[in-house]
Nucleic acid binder design. Structure first.
Lengths: 218, 218
DNA sequence: ATTTAAATACATTCATGCATGAATATCAAT
DNA sequence: ATTGATATTCATGCATGAATGTATTTAAAT
């Protein structure tokens, strides 16, 4: 074939990306050839190489279109800070809703989560995953500490305990649901977050005293 | 080279398996060739084909040596049933301890979790993952229901809510820790489980009334 | 006329799986 | 204990196929 208009070229690019999502989602990232993706997109391999350097580059372009859960959960630097817990709740529910309702988002996320190999050869996405995870923890910690300062959480709550539990529970529910979406994620998620926040306020098992823990200075 | 004694042959097999763990853990399952694994094991590809049919077969042999978290979490059909909550607690802590202390176990688990592609071409491991997940949910539900019957949890606790939250939280913490093992999993895990069980007993957000939910018949 | 999207053709690389062969372990028979 | 036959582990070499990346060509848009 021959040259298309600029708009057509962009559309071709999108078609390739969509085809790649479908193929990667069904067969993983490593196995399928570019031929397979090209054919599903209705073009030849030449077109793919015209838009992307190689499969890794195509994969990166795909993942750039979505936010990872940790990125979505902990984006802005908690504006204002008047209601940290409300902020946390809002963001969690937003994430649950987005994952549940946006099919395309979900499929890309499923590819990253369980249909690609997080190794150095996939440097870009590996980096994003680990860094967003770490950054998520950091932001979550700030939220929790702000909540303590604001009086929304008890003084003697141990962030070293609360943060990983909170993070693991929310992200864990999300991942679980992706594996087996047998329930209403938004409803269960809402209840989870509410119950967890309540738990942070009241549970003696999350206090600093329990086991020896580096006592927060100041 | 030539034939070895039976024991030597078994040792060769083990060496190949260990080499495969190392290679898969570092570079993922799909990329490395059998040559790479053989060389690390100090043999040639011929030896690998002598012990395993192909890479997929080798990978299966690897994963057969460990239990998945859900398998470990929900093995026996809850013997006796006098103390369901204690049973649940015990199993969770056992899992946390095992993952934290057994390096080999952990590496294989990390391969399954984030260094292989869970697609139909990897049928065996995909099946194990999805089935153990489902079975884990089923067993967890039985435990929760038994706990309600035994009076350890409130009558109006909604298992449809409690089970996914419990499962997601525990498995989520485990997965989180594997990504970034920056804390003591056993300590945080213990506190998490204790706080969660407490939460199940007291939180109004996990009751049946909240939103319309299929009322458990009888 | 020139530029560019996309097809086509081609060379190269590489992993796989198998067939073959070497050399020792194992065991039965003496 | 020695010998001989057999089985078995592992190395080697080869044929095959497939995917990749690039170079070249085509033909339309500007």
């Amino acid at each position: 074939m021959a040259r298309r208009r600029k708009e057509d070229a962009l559309e071709t690019r999108e078609r390739i990306l969509d085809a790649a999502i479908e193929v990667f989602h069904k067969r993983g990232v490593s196995r399928p050839s570019l031929t397979e993706i090209a054919e599903l997109a209705g073009v030849t391999r030449g077109a793919v190489y015209g838009h992307f350097q190689n499969k890794a580059d195509l994969f990166i372009a795909l993942t750039d279109r979505i936010q990872l859960p940790d990125e979505s959960l902990c984006q802005a630097p908690l504006h204002g800070g008047c209601d940290p817990l409300g902020e946390l709740r809002k963001r969690s529910l937003f994430l649950f809703r987005e994952v549940m309702n946006d099919e395309q988002y979900r499929r890309v996320f499923e590819i990253i989560l369980m249909r690609c190999e997080l190794v150095t050869e996939n440097g870009e996405i590996l980096k994003r995953c680990t860094e967003s995870h770490a950054e998520g923890d950091r932001r979550l910690r700030k939220l929790v500490e702000a909540a303590i300062t604001a009086g929304q959480l008890p003084e003697d709550l141990d962030p070293n305990i609360a943060v990983p539990i909170l993070h693991g529970s929310v992200i864990g529910l999300l991942n679980d649901w992706l594996i087996n979406p047998a329930y209403d994620l938004v409803e269960v998620g809402t209840r989870q977050v509410d119950a967890l926040l309540e738990m942070l306020q009241s549970s003696p098992h999350l206090k600093r005293s329990g086991t020896l823990q580096a006592p927060a200075s100041a």
